[in-house]
Nucleic acid binder design. Sequence first.
DNA 1: CGTCGGAATTTGCCTGACAACTTGCCAACA
DNA 2: TGTTGGCAAGTTGTCAGGCAAATTCCGACG
Lengths: 245, 245
Amino acid sequence: MPTDEPDDKSIPRSAKGSGRRLRGAVAHYLGSAIVSGEIAPGEKLTGEIANAEALDVSRSAYREAVQVLTAKGLVESRPKAGTRVLPRSRWNILDPQVLAWAFSAEPDVSFVRDLFELRAVVEPAAARFAAERRDKDDVKAMKDALAKMRRHTLATEAGRAADRAFHDALLRATHNDAMIALSASISAAVSWTTEFKQRSRALPRDPVPDHARVFDAIAAGDPDAASTAMRALVDLALDDTRSAM
Amino acid sequence: MPTDEPDDKSIPRSAKGSGRRLRGAVAHYLGSAIVSGEIAPGEKLTGEIANAEALDVSRSAYREAVQVLTAKGLVESRPKAGTRVLPRSRWNILDPQVLAWAFSAEPDVSFVRDLFELRAVVEPAAARFAAERRDKDDVKAMKDALAKMRRHTLATEAGRAADRAFHDALLRATHNDAMIALSASISAAVSWTTEFKQRSRALPRDPVPDHARVFDAIAAGDPDAASTAMRALVDLALDDTRSAM
DNA sequence: CGTCGGAATTTGCCTGACAACTTGCCAACA
DNA sequence: TGTTGGCAAGTTGTCAGGCAAATTCCGACG
């Protein structure tokens, strides 16, 4: 029998042109398999040489991919013991890439709930800080994003990008690096769920008025109003998402 | 001249016995250099072959270390362009390891402020959720941690461990994975700052009563009381830290 | 002056081999 | 029989060198 056959596993080489380098494709493959539960915590995945060969990549590329997973707390590897999937509690689920893997398949309902709860806590507080600290550039960035949201709808990628830009500008207006980093992750996750919402039904509500209220409060420098307006916005988004799942 | 000389850079091989593997030492070395600002964003670090040789490690080990930094958003590398340090806004500063690197040297004051602000937002909300959702095991874990806090003081490592265990149990009682992951990072960072506090002056206040109030409210299932008690606790901790820096 | 194409440089990937570290078995001993 | 010590095997960790791919930079040409 010949030594070069299509094997039975999968060929990440097909996703090579996807911008990601080869190790990125392998990391995506393994990472998705782990966060989707296909490889359960505690399980030991196949040895490097065998797995690398099965995926048709060199051991170095495979190892570099595993390093990425290790850096994100998904796996841990020790000599002779192999590399094992760590318990969920040790995963960096706020890592943007891990979130992306989680949402590359149908995401877990309870996890989406957790995410929105956290968002409902952080974003109103962020709006409050933004109302206190925003400067001229911040206001301009938010105004521009809002204008773009008016022109497009959430059904288009441009509209979702404008939505992201609005929240991004808002977070940046807090001038708090920790909050910026956190909500960057959350917003990314939220934008995935927005896609799901659009997929399942027509746009349930025009999001522009809600955002406009938040913007007005922040521009006016009214922390309380900004906080409550944002709270309302997140609650509505949560309702929409919940009814769509 | 001989080919084997002590060179001028540094030898991470000294930290090899530190439990971390060799690439871990290299990652720590580079990561600390970046978050401390020693290598500024936008700067391009030395080529792989040269840098690996300067650190006296193989290119594979060096590359795996760089993959870790890439996974945490600290650097980005492209062929011919080299690997450049990304702007702070793209770092995963909530990543536990990145936080550890940030606190391995004297941490930036404004960054500590940001962290405490986020904590002041998240932890009271977490206490509220905990009061609503805690089960018997959660209460027991918190009670045990509180008892350990009474026996030791924050000046000892055992006391700080008990403090961490208390906050950990509280977060776990929220039954919200996203919040657990987030506050796990924050708590770790807070515990670093606690060490600083202890270093600079005698323990300024007995933390047990504050924690006991939070515990009572959660055990009693009173969300509002839990939230305000936790809010008071964080505010006091912030005062202490601020006066110590 | 703008555009196109080539060449140099740097990372990306591959191969093969050896070292280090655990884990678990197995035997010797109390 | 239980325990303890060491031995062996297996898996990851590190090393060395080479080639391929990609992208930037610069020079040539329209």
